[in-house]
Simulated scan of single mutants.
Amino acid sequence: MSDSAAIRRQLPRGRHHLTREQVVASQRERILVAMGEAMTEGGYVNTPVASVLKRAGVSRETFYELFRSKEDCFAAAFDRASQLLAERLQDSITDDVDALTRMDNILTAYFGHMIDDPASARLFLVEVYAAGPTAIKARMELQHRFVAVVATMLGAQTPEQQFACATLAAAIGAMVTGKIAADDLASLWELKDHLIALARRSGTVYGNAFAD
């Protein structure tokens, strides 16, 4: 078992070999994971801290040592989910392939992440809009980063192409959010195929990746 996997499991009772830093890291990670999982049942508004504590296996005292409030915990869980997605997308980007393969790789990573971690996907695509203006601002910043990924993927260079990529990213976000909210994860792969076909038909609307 890796070190990261070891600190994510619930700590054993009694004496153990973990340092204080590892204990805190384990508790924090379990709380962040539990926040996403708890909201799949009741949504952000109807998820009390007690539900998160039960799933995480930590005390209320431990929770408030790490987070000021449920809102603070949600913000940290959102940052965690965003970072995991960014890392997966980054790992999928390669320069030594053609545009079609690069787009397929990136979308496969994006949709694969949603399917592999639906609780996190729901957290940053659906529940974020119920968590207040600070969370929504963070969501918009994440959307801007996604636009940059789309623009790079499609070879956008002009302001018009950049704007077209922004509208495409917004459409992708809206469609994926709808599917996550409806728990219709399987159809994400069909959506991926339609998006690739759209990009191939678009000429230079979004960028020069598929220019004739």
Rank of each mutant, 00 (worst) to 15 (best):
E21T: 09
A81N: 09
Q27W: 02
M114K: 06
L100P: 13
V45I: 06
E71S: 15
A50L: 01
R55V: 01
V45Y: 03
K54G: 01
L53W: 04
D96A: 15
P118E: 03
V126M: 01
D104F: 14
I93S: 14
V49S: 00
R102C: 11
S69L: 02
T19C: 03
E37L: 05
D72H: 13
G112N: 03
L125V: 09
R68N: 11
Y64W: 04
R102K: 13
I93G: 10
I115K: 15
D98R: 14
A75Y: 03
R102N: 11
K70S: 06
G42Q: 14
I93C: 14
N105P: 02
L32T: 05
G14H: 05
G36Q: 00
A119E: 00
A77K: 00
L11N: 02
P118F: 07
Q27V: 08
G57K: 10
I31P: 01
V45Q: 06
E41D: 10
Q83E: 10
H16K: 01
D104R: 15
N46S: 13
S69G: 07
P12V: 06
A86L: 12
I115C: 04
A121N: 08
D72I: 04
D95R: 10
R122M: 09
D79K: 14
A86N: 08
L100N: 14
L123G: 06
D95V: 04
V33P: 03
R28L: 08
Q27I: 08
E71L: 11
V24S: 13
K54H: 04
Q83G: 12
Q27R: 12
N105V: 04
F124Y: 12
L107A: 06
L123E: 05
G43P: 11
R60F: 01
M35P: 03
Y44F: 06
D91W: 12
G36M: 08
V126T: 11
F111P: 04
E65I: 05
R28Q: 11
R80V: 10
L107D: 06
Y110D: 09
T62M: 07
A76T: 12
